[in-house]
Design a protein around this nucleic acid. Structure first.
Length: 312
DNA sequence: CGGGTTTGACCGGCGC
DNA sequence: GCGCCGGTCAAACCCG
């Protein structure tokens, strides 16, 4: 289903926003000085909020345990919160066995009721082509976005939700087209963009925008059933992409520093994630509805290595 | 036949 | 004002 041909790339800058060879992340985010200008034209890099990160090397962030403290200061719903002054980027050891994922959150927009806003936007769009109304004075507000970088052979990573592709565009600075997906659930306006890293096509950058207003509709699919299921569920609980392709398709990054990370930093939607996670955790074949609340510790068990949990 | 994908056109934002 | 570019729409197409 991938179409790589027919993509008009008029000018390809030699940006090397990501390199898997010297992964992890320095190569990805070390774009300070003269790369900064390019960043502005890089679609996914601005999503990654690189600029915030430039001054603080990732490893330092990780090592200094800022993320847990960040997590503590995060409001229940980071996506509807104002931008936090401290480094907002979050990186995570993927829960998926077959891919490595790096993520980053960006709060470009601040809105307490994204769903309502989307409805309004949707209405405007619906009438736009018919009536071509004057544009409102309001600037179009974007949903907070949340990006993942995943090493994968497949473009569209399974993340537990169902997506409909509504567009594909060739993007500047990249040989690879960017695909646009929208959650197929009615009244859920979550979107995601999927593109490949220019310098390393094996890396897929997935950017989520908005928050789901519903639990994941995906029950164990045929291609999820099995050893992938649990990890896939865990990944999806945090909006992380997960793999459905055979494991031999994928390689692993070694990102030891990510051991310092809490997956809760992925909580792009705290309450949703909690609910979602619970449902996911207990949607696997088993008796009856899920048990009572899980402690955070329990959430971590899905993703973090056991020794990390002991340390906590 | 319903749902998803493809693809060209259109629109708005933004920089010059 | 103009052109570039990202994002979206929607008709046509595909597929199970």
């Amino acid at each position: 289903m991938e179409r790589k041909e027919g993509v008009k790339v008029e000018d390809v800058l030699g940006n090397s926003s990501c390199s898997v060879n010297d992964f992890p992340l320095q190569s990805i985010f070390d774009l300070s000085s003269n790369e900064e200008e390019k960043i502005r034209s890089l679609g996914f890099m601005d999503l990654l909020g690189v600029q915030d990160l430039i001054s603080s090397p990732l490893l330092e962030i990780m090592a200094s345990q800022q993320l847990p403290s960040l997590m503590a200061t995060q409001p229940p719903n980071p996506f509807s919160s104002t931008k936090i002054g401290s480094p907002h980027e979050v990186f995570n050891q993927p829960a998926t066995p077959n891919s490595s994922t790096i993520s980053s959150a960006s709060s470009e927009a601040v809105h307490d009721e994204p769903a309502k806003l989307d409805d309004q936007e949707e209405d405007q769009r619906k009438t736009k082509k018919q009536l071509k109304p004057k544009k409102t004075n309001q600037k179009r507000q974007r949903e907070p976005r949340f990006a993942f970088m995943t090493k994968s052979e497949v473009d569209h990573l399974e993340d537990g939700y169902r997506w409909r592709k509504y567009g594909q565009k060739a993007v500047k600075n990249s040989h690879f087209p960017r695909s646009y997906y929208r959650c197929t659930t009615i009244s859920c306006n979550v979107k995601k963009r999927v593109e490949r890293c220019f310098s390393d096509p094996s890396i897929v950058v997935t950017t989520y925008e908005g928050q789901h207003t519903h639990p994941s509709p995906v029950m164990p699919r045929p291609n999820l059933v099995g050893s992938h299921l649990n990890s896939a569920i865990s990944a999806a609980s945090f909006g992380m992409p997960m793999q459905t392709t055979p494991s031999h398709y994928h390689q692993h990054f070694q990102q030891p520093f990510t051991d310092n990370l809490s997956p809760l930093n992925f909580g792009h939607n705290g309450s949703l994630n909690a609910t979602f996670l619970h449902q996911k955790r207990f949607c696997t074949p088993g008796p009856g509805p899920g048990p009572s609340l899980l402690k955070d510790h329990g959430l971590l068990q899905d993703i973090l290595p056991s020794h990390m949990l002991k340390e906590e």
